Simulated assay, not measured.
Amino acid sequence: MPLTIQEMARRSGFSEPTLRYYEKIGLLGVVERDASSGHRRYDETVVARVEALACLRSSGVTVDGMRRYVELVDKGDGAAGELRELFDEHAAHLAAEIERLRVRQEYLVLKARMWDARDQGDRRAEAETVKRVEEILRRF
């Protein structure tokens, strides 16, 4: 049974305006309308596409990346290599972002230790921690 826009929004995590926008820019393909009310009805094919887009979006893929994904999926199996490249590129981008987040986390942990050492009056521990913080800052 086709889903309403409200049901699709709840299921996907996208807002209703986002679903309308994605439809407008061609990411969803054809979204059928109820004959009597004109309201959107998301069939299994569109639901599957929205769910795929939700996964892509949650992993940080941009709208342009989603457009490229849709273009390639619509080409069929002949685009498998290009799809692999698309996912490999995004996985590498995500790995780099994770590393940046790890560095930021390490920075915050060290800053907390630095302030703890200062609070405890431990100048040696504070100086060592400051040195490590400076090393982290060079990695930014």
Score class of each variant (00 low, 15 high):
Pro2Thr: 08
Leu3Arg: 13
Thr4Gln: 01
Ile5Gln: 05
Ile5Glu: 08
Gln6Met: 12
Ser12Thr: 03
Ser12Lys: 02
Ser12Trp: 05
Phe14Val: 06
Phe14His: 06
Phe14Ala: 09
Thr18Arg: 11
Thr18Tyr: 02
Arg20Asn: 12
Arg20Phe: 13
Tyr21Val: 00
Glu23Gln: 13
Glu23Asn: 13
Leu28His: 11
Leu28Lys: 05
Val30Cys: 05
Val31Glu: 07
Glu32Asp: 14
Asp34Ile: 02
Ala35Phe: 11
Ala35Trp: 02
Ser36Asn: 14
Gly38Gln: 02
Gly38Val: 04
His39Gly: 06
Arg41Gly: 05
Arg41Gln: 15
Arg41Val: 08
Thr45Val: 14
Thr45Glu: 09
Thr45Gly: 11
Val46Glu: 03
Val46Cys: 10
Ala48Gln: 14
Glu51Pro: 01
Glu51Leu: 15
Ala52Asp: 00
Leu53Lys: 07
Leu53Ile: 12
Ala54Tyr: 06
Cys55Ala: 12
Leu56His: 05
Leu56Glu: 00
Arg57Ser: 14
Arg57Cys: 07
Ser58Asn: 12
Ser59Pro: 00
Gly60Leu: 02
Gly60Tyr: 05
Thr62His: 05
Thr62Lys: 01
Thr62Met: 02
Val63Glu: 09
Val63Asn: 09
Gly65Val: 01
Arg68Lys: 10
Arg68Tyr: 01
Tyr69Met: 13
Glu71Trp: 06
Glu71Thr: 15
Glu71His: 13
Leu72Cys: 12
Val73His: 06
Asp74Arg: 14
Asp74Ser: 14
Asp74Met: 03
Lys75Cys: 12
Gly76Met: 04
Gly76Arg: 06
Gly78Gln: 09
Ala79Arg: 07
Ala80His: 08
Glu82Gly: 06
Glu85Cys: 04
Glu85Leu: 14
Glu85Trp: 02
Glu85Ser: 14
Phe87Ile: 09
Phe87Arg: 08
His90Tyr: 10
Ala91Glu: 11
Ala91Val: 04
Ala92Asn: 12
Ala95Gly: 12
Ala95His: 14
Glu97Thr: 14
Glu97Phe: 02
Ile98Asp: 11
Glu99Val: 11
Arg100Ala: 15
Arg100Tyr: 03
Arg100Ser: 15
Leu101Asp: 07
Arg102Lys: 15
Arg102Asn: 13
Gln105Trp: 01
Glu106Ile: 01
Leu108Met: 11
Leu108Gln: 07
Ala112Pro: 00
Ala112Phe: 00
Arg113Val: 00
Trp115His: 13
Arg118Ala: 10
Arg123Ser: 10
Arg124Leu: 09
Ala125Asn: 03
Ala127Asp: 13
Ala127Phe: 08
Thr129Gly: 09
Val130Asn: 00
Val130Ser: 05
Lys131Gly: 07
Lys131Trp: 03
Val133Gln: 02
Val133His: 01
Val133Glu: 04
Glu135Ala: 15
Leu137Glu: 15
Arg139Met: 12
Arg139Ile: 02
Phe140Trp: 11
